[in-house]
Amino acid sequence: MNDERTTRNVADEPERLTPPDTGVSRAQWVYETLRDGIRLGTWRRGERVREETVARALGVSRTPVREALSRLQARGLLEVTANGLVVATISRPQTLELYAMREVLEGSAARFAAQHAAPSEIASLKHLSAAFTEAAGDPARLANLNRQFHAAIQDAAHNRYLVRMLEDLSDALALLPGTTFELPERGALAVEEHGAILAAIERRDPDAAEQAARAHIRRAQEARLELMQRAG
């Protein structure tokens, strides 16, 4: 295996980032930056991740990097191999397991949202749904808005333990390359699926909301498997 795949050189890093001057800890910021980098493909599956390289690239000391890498490893985004710490890969069986759990949890989130969502939260869901519809043809924006839509449903569920479990799943999804919205038909289908979920939440129908959310995740799984098949 050549060095280009297994070792990242500082010269290959994107422009050096600056830690935010906010209440977010540096370890949390490093964690989120690396997680998002894995999701976007900045850090490729199987690529070696060096503590000192990350620290230089992000302009922080090695202590918060060490904490972030440990957390990423615990979440399954990084794994130890003979070559050192690398970005994990995800198999087809693991993908099926991930979507199976996502279907259960997203369904529960929609059910609880139908029971507990405040009018302002339903208004936010409508806004995101409309923005998603307008983003047709832009896979990256569709993916981002889709994450926001699901996060808004989770917030509207008002169940902190469910949110924690869904956050773990969301991190695992970062290992899946690309986005299902790269498939030409996926965006239009998701518009209809989001609409069904939103309508059920708005009319306070927990059963319908859960069924619509679970159907949405099953369709997303089908799209993901199609992408994996195309990639070989």
Results as ranks from 00 to 15, higher is better:
residue 135 A to C: 02
residue 140 A to N: 08
residue 166 L to A: 07
residue 146 N to H: 10
residue 136 A to V: 06
residue 142 L to G: 08
residue 147 R to T: 04
residue 165 M to K: 15
residue 163 V to Y: 07
residue 169 L to I: 13
residue 130 A to K: 15
residue 149 F to R: 01
residue 147 R to C: 00
residue 161 Y to N: 09
residue 160 R to N: 01
residue 157 A to I: 15
residue 158 H to N: 01
residue 135 A to K: 04
residue 169 L to Y: 11
residue 166 L to G: 04
residue 153 I to G: 03
residue 169 L to N: 13
residue 148 Q to R: 12
residue 153 I to H: 00
residue 145 L to Y: 11
residue 145 L to F: 10
residue 165 M to S: 14
residue 149 F to H: 09
residue 146 N to W: 06
residue 127 H to G: 02
residue 167 E to K: 15
residue 133 T to F: 10
residue 148 Q to E: 11
residue 146 N to Q: 08
residue 148 Q to P: 10
residue 168 D to V: 12
residue 159 N to Q: 13
residue 140 A to S: 06
residue 169 L to K: 14
residue 134 E to D: 10
residue 155 D to R: 15
residue 156 A to N: 14
residue 158 H to L: 07
residue 136 A to Y: 11
residue 156 A to L: 06
residue 164 R to M: 06
residue 164 R to P: 00
residue 148 Q to N: 10
residue 141 R to A: 01
residue 151 A to G: 01
residue 139 P to G: 00
residue 153 I to A: 02
residue 157 A to D: 05
residue 158 H to V: 03
residue 151 A to E: 05
residue 170 S to L: 07
residue 129 S to G: 05
residue 164 R to L: 07
residue 145 L to D: 05
residue 173 L to D: 00
residue 130 A to W: 15
residue 163 V to L: 02
residue 157 A to H: 12
residue 144 N to A: 10
residue 134 E to F: 13
residue 168 D to I: 10
residue 146 N to T: 14
residue 144 N to L: 10
residue 143 A to L: 02
residue 173 L to N: 11
residue 170 S to N: 12
residue 128 L to Y: 12
residue 152 A to T: 06
residue 138 D to E: 03
residue 168 D to P: 00
residue 136 A to I: 02
